[in-house]
């Protein structure tokens, strides 16, 4: 285990060192759906060393073994860039959103449910480098996501591996931003699209029909400073399982 400590420290260093982001991962959602008519709505609030974010998720199974999901993600950070004396000079920020839809199949088995989703989404990451210098990149993500979920009366456990193809089809960039930031964007433009896996999981306590859960997603990226990618997101969420809610009401 020891080698992982410096690795984690290095990760944190890069995460904190790079304050402008062009991508930040939303949570890997693992819908707790087992049969036709099941549905979930969820809201998760996350953070990493730099950004704060909100993640909204809805999923529903309209047919047997088939489900759809819709995710909306919003992230933001703002900070003051100091001058060489350490005094704050101007406000800078990173903000972005992402909307995606996915469809897939699920197959319950003895110890849980396996599922496979395929999805596509679009979003935007806007960085303000101060004194009205903006980079505004449109991003597009295609993904294939196998998931494994387990649930009982009290717990929810979900794991998902999101295989991502991320691209930046277009962008508008103020060339007055710092040369090193321009370099990051040019590198990103040159090397797009990117292929990488994101590993996500959640663990929740269930109080019918509500689940309170902790979420974690890790993106297996090159050092974030290469492209201004954010590689981690940790959050706390609340979800509502619609079939249980309606059952309660029927009772």
């Amino acid at each position: 285990m020891r080698p992982s400590i410096p690795l984690f420290a290095a990760f944190l260093f890069f995460a904190i060192g790079c304050r402008h982001y062009h991508y930040s991962p939303n949570f890997v959602h693992t819908p707790y759906i087992e049969k036709k008519g099941d549905g979930v709505v969820a809201a998760t609030f996350g953070a990493n060393p730099v950004t704060l974010n909100g993640d909204f998720h809805a999923s529903y199974s309209p047919i047997k073994h088939g489900a759809v999901m819709l995710n909306y993600f919003r992230t933001r950070s703002s900070f003051e860039e100091p001058n060489f004396l350490g005094q704050p000079v101007y406000q800078e920020s990173t903000e972005g959103y992402f909307l995606e839809a996915a469809a897939g199949g699920y197959w319950p088995f003895e110890f849980g449910t396996v599922a496979m989703y395929v999805g596509w989404g679009q979003g935007q990451m806007r960085n303000d480098y101060g004194i009205a210098r903006i980079s505004d990149l449109r991003l597009q993500r295609f993904f294939v996501q196998p998931t494994l979920t387990y649930k009982n009366d009290w717990f929810r456990l979900g794991l998902g591996l999101r295989l991502v193809q991320l691209s930046f089809p277009s962008g508008t960039i103020d060339y007055r931003i710092e040369p090193e930031d321009i370099e990051v964007i040019k590198r990103l433009e040159k090397d797009s699209p990117f292929w990488f896996p994101e590993l996500g999981g959640n663990l929740g306590l269930h109080f019918k029909p509500v689940t309170i859960s902790a979420h974690l997603v890790l993106a297996a990226l090159r050092p974030s400073t290469d492209y201004g990618f954010d590689g981690i997101n940790i959050g706390l969420g609340i979800s509502l399982e619609l079939q249980e809610l309606f059952k309660k009401r029927e009772k």
Binding site: Q165, F168, P169, S170, T172, K190, S192
Partner: peptide, 10 residues
């Protein structure tokens, strides 16, 4: 989709 390259406007 992978074939789509970026086209940024500076």
């Amino acid at each position: 989709l992978g074939a789509c390259k970026s086209d940024f406007n500076y």
